[in-house]
């Protein structure tokens, strides 16, 4: 009996090793999904659309991004007050970084260093050198900092503070705030277009997305949403992604269970795609063929075919999927 257990443990260990060894051979792109309520990260093979691994993480994983080369996954373990860095190929924890208290979302400088982290509990943005884990500076911002965006040239970092209802623009050379943009209630995400000519800011409770011109930091347009059969209260924009060519923007609308497709030139909403429940964050595959949405209340991710603008599949992940990043 005892030997049997021993044997099976060994077998499991060997199987585990084999699986770990087999993983780098996975050539296709993989989506990494943080599952806020069960403290794990799901790895989804984007070719087969199957979960190939579930990794135990620190407590309450939320924000998730990748290094510019796609080799490292950075994850905010909010309740453990740290950033965890995983090897995207071996799926092993490589190191942890300081984060300041309650990290929620973060953004890497386009060069891959430093890391700008929103400390939701502490009204600060913490800037950390990812090479040596040294604190570069703490930037005081508004109440409940959350969304983090960085201009493609790396000159400006933008943080949204949810209860202050502002986007704070920080000059990354001086780490000082140069502009405060008042937007609607509970701004969640700040996302630059790839050409750096638009800054998109979603306001969850306000129900709008403000598109800002970074030349003047003025709002060009506030986009609002109307969905037949869905109350305005349920339309809560969170995640925003803009295609590389600057033609389309996708906005996750939370408990409206829809992703809005927006013409990024005219800034008009074109259609709404029905996805899972309480959709929050979005992530493109590197070739932008697919967009992955995290659906917190249905515990799955929806896969959107970007060209046809259709939802093609949903994949069950962990409890309360929060963020997603896809690497080659």
């Amino acid at each position: 009996m005892r030997r049997q257990i021993l044997l099976s443990t060994t077998a499991a260990a060997i199987a585990g090793l084999m699986l770990a060894d087999a993983l780098p051979a996975q050539a296709g792109p993989r989506a990494f999904v943080s599952n806020e309520r069960d403290h794990t990260m799901s790895v989804v093979d984007m070719d087969t659309l199957k979960v190939i691994e579930t990794i135990k993480t620190g407590r309450r994983p939320r924000g998730i991004i990748a290094s510019p080369d796609g080799k490292l996954i950075y994850l905010c373990a909010s309740d453990d007050n740290r950033v965890e860095v995983y090897d995207a190929a071996t799926l092993k924890l490589v190191k942890t970084l300081r984060s300041g208290p309650d990290p929620e979302l973060f953004v890497l400088h386009p060069s891959g260093n430093p890391l700008y982290i929103a400390n939701e509990d502490d009204n600060m943005v913490t800037v950390v050198n990812v090479d040596n884990n040294e604190l570069v500076v703490e930037i005081p911002v508004g109440v409940e900092p959350e969304g983090m965006g960085i201009s493609p040239d790396g000159k400006y970092m933008v943080n949204t503070s949810e209860t202050t209802n502002m986007a704070h623009v920080v000059d990354t050379a001086t780490n000082e705030i140069i502009e405060n943009i008042l937007v609607d209630s509970r701004p969640r995400i700040a996302e630059f277009s790839k050409d750096g000519k638009q800054l998109w800011i979603s306001a969850e409770v306000g129900g709008t997305v403000a598109v800002v011109d970074p030349a003047t930091w003025k709002i060009i347009k506030k986009i609002s949403f109307k969905i037949p059969g869905v109350t305005d209260d349920a339309i809560q924009p969170v995640g925003v992604r803009v295609t590389k060519d600057g033609s389309k923007a996708f906005v996750a609308l939370g408990p409206a269970n829809r992703v809005a497709v927006i013409d990024a030139k005219t800034l008009e909403v074109e259609k709404y795609l029905l996805v899972g429940q309480r959709v929050w964050q979005l992530g493109f595959t590197p070739d932008e063929k697919f967009l992955v949405t995290t659906n917190g209340n249905s515990n799955d991710v929806s896969i959107i075919d970007v060209a046809s603008e259709k939802v093609t599949k949903s994949v069950t992940v962990g409890r309360s999927p929060w963020g997603v990043v896809v690497v080659p």
């Binding site: 453990d80 740290r82 942890t96 300081r98 984060s99 300041g100």
Partner: peptide, 15 residues
């Protein structure tokens, strides 16, 4: 992780 966590929390509180 536990060690790092404890350190981070302590320093975070100070700061």
């Amino acid at each position: 992780i536990a060690t790092v966590c404890a350190m981070t929390v302590a320093s975070a509180q100070e700061a």
